[in-house]
Design a protein around this nucleic acid. Structure first.
Lengths: 347, 347
DNA sequence: AGGTTCCGTGGGACCGCTCCCACGCGGCAT
DNA sequence: ATGCCGCGTGGGAGCGGTCCCACGGAACCT
């Protein structure tokens, strides 16, 4: 049997340990540990010697050992319900994650991505996440009925949500100013002289959808108009839902001259339906969406839309979480970030 | 000072350990470990007793301790160069990651997401990843010049790439049949009676871009046409690049009647330019894209495009990687997955 | 009957780090 | 001089698993 037939040698490249560094630097393990963790209680010359030894050996601390001893993991889980992932404007997740990643990197923390294919997984997940696996959890896209956040809360796992489940959300969270954004969209339509403005909502078990509807109402009431309930159609954040809602609106109020859709995807469905019905956008009916997603730029005509500062939301979520991790038991904070209306050709 | 003013008690919920389970089940630690790891060398009654104890205590193994002792981490890193992330059709990353996640979940492995903001980070990253942090690495979107894969290879870190850097890629990888997909696109145009077919390429330092150009050539040569180099314009996978390339093609060959763009984003730029030049799509010029991304469905007219099986690519990458982890030193494998032409209205 | 073999099991020795206690020593007050 | 304080420092004791060796007893052999 030739050597080549042997099972592969355990490639196990044995990396230098804390001990090796200590020996080379001529100090104790404790001292090396202090240097690595930036403790101030190390004299300058000792620190220099240790750093020299670290560089020489190319030493990198073993995260598992560190985690075992310190009961920290330096890792944060980002939980994304997979069912939603398709619905949302695609940039939603990727941009938030970009922001999260950037902020975590600064703090030297790792990002564990957990896609949850199924609500049934939620129960197992909570226990799992609490088992010294991560220092905290970031949840994207929470529904009103989600129980995972509460379980994490009970298990004392620091948690920050993207968006809230409803007013009075007990957990820390970051959200866009949904009602303000919706309001600015409708005000824009009013400023353009539109008077019969419909809206297509998202699923109302999501706070963001409710808030956008509130913003629509506020804008109209603010100028003394009464809200015509027939101008409100309920969608589901999907294109087909937007289309159906638009059809409904046209049947109920054929003379409407503008629509505010609570998402770009629904807006694009609405545009298709308007075209089918022989109406021109924006000449006959102006359309404003929400999210400023890719489709907004690419449909015809390009969509005026409300942009959320997604990357900043991610960054803020991460920093709130890091704060909760550092100050366990502190009160939860909520941050609302402003939106911006991006005007294009549809309104 | 009331208790409420005290610093919060270290919430440290002390979870049960292996020892606790062993004590409750009346067995040794070794036996519990065997049960957890599914070793066959445990008698049925003992196993039952241990499982009972585990359930009773709600025991979950501490991953850090396990990792420290076993030198495994049960974690895989997915490395995504952030610069590219915007360029690509958005579903690209999210769908591949979905596939990766699904496959890893089955194997009980975690997904560590690493966004690399900058090529300069690469050097540090390699050392970092090799420091007992992950069992393997998945790299998305590799360029011809990327050195990270080689470094990982040297450091004996199992690695699988999405796409290859070029022919003869030494590392394991999964890619779509780019040339075949391009070929089917051009054959579709030929079948529609188009005869003067231009192409807009991606950056040729990427193998996928080269392969798509090759497919274009093959399709034409296959029917005995000679390739007119003036019908080839070089883009960069961006919309603006596609637009500029289209402008160039129109200047050089005003009579062309079809274009195959190596990405949907470039195709959308091309469509805009065609419209600007007063041409109708597909009546005057037919357009086919690549990726079947969101924009393909939403631009006007909806784009005929080549779809890659992204989720399956992700799944396959994960399973190749798991194989490499289990059989270190084995030879690297490459898998090519078929593409599918999705016909819409643009061609 | 005695000797092997094999199976299931217990437990010691780590894995590589952090935490914390104890110790030596120079500087300062007494 | 004597005592005390406090800063730097060394190193023991875990953290919670895995791995592997050794051991007892049942089953099989000669």
């Amino acid at each position: 049997m030739s050597p080549a037939d042997q099972p592969p040698p355990r490639a196990e490249v044995r990396r230098p340990t804390l001990n090796a560094v200590a020996a080379l630097a001529g100090v104790g393990r404790g001292t090396v540990s202090r240097v690595i963790n930036g403790s101030p209680k190390v004299s300058a010359p000792t620190r220099a010697a240790v750093e020299q030894a670290i560089a020489e050996l190319g030493y990198i601390p073993n995260p598992a050992a560190r985690s075992l001893a310190s009961r920290r993991t330096d890792t944060v889980a980002v939980v994304v319900p997979e069912g939603e992932a398709r619905l949302f404007s695609e940039p939603y997740f990727s941009e938030i994650i970009r922001g999260v990643s950037a902020e975590l990197a600064i703090a030297g923390m790792q990002l564990l991505l957990v896609l949850v294919p199924d609500e049934k997984e939620y129960a197992r997940l909570a226990t799992y996440l609490s088992a010294h696996r991560v220092d905290g959890v970031l949840m994207l896209s929470v529904h009103g009925g989600d129980t995972l956040p509460d379980r994490l809360h009970e298990l004392a796992v620091p948690t920050v949500l993207a968006g809230r489940r409803g007013p009075g959300e007990p957990l820390g969270h970051v959200r866009a100013d949904n009602s303000g954004g919706a309001r600015s969209a409708v005000e824009h339509l009013l400023a353009k002289g539109r008077r019969t403005i419909g809206t297509i909502t998202g699923p109302l078990d999501m706070d963001a959808a409710r808030a956008r509807l509130d913003g629509y109402r506020e804008a109209l009431e603010h100028v003394g108009m009464t809200v015509d309930e027939d101008l409100i159609a309920y969608g589901d954040f999907r294109e087909e839902g937007g289309r159906a809602a638009m059809r409904q609106l046209l049947r109920r109020r054929p003379g409407l001259d503008a629509v505010f859709a609570a998402s770009d995807v629904m807006a694009s469905g609405a545009v298709l339906e308007l075209r089918t019905s022989g109406r021109r956008v924006p000449d006959d009916v102006a359309v404003v969406g929400f999210d400023d997603s890719i489709v907004a730029r690419h449909i015809d005509p390009p969509l005026t839309s409300v942009r959320q500062p997604l990357e900043e939301m991610g960054r803020t979520m991460a920093s709130l979480l890091l704060h909760e991790i550092a100050h366990r038991g502190g009160d939860h904070r909520e941050v609302v970030l402003p939106t911006r209306l991006v005007v294009r050709e549809s309104a």
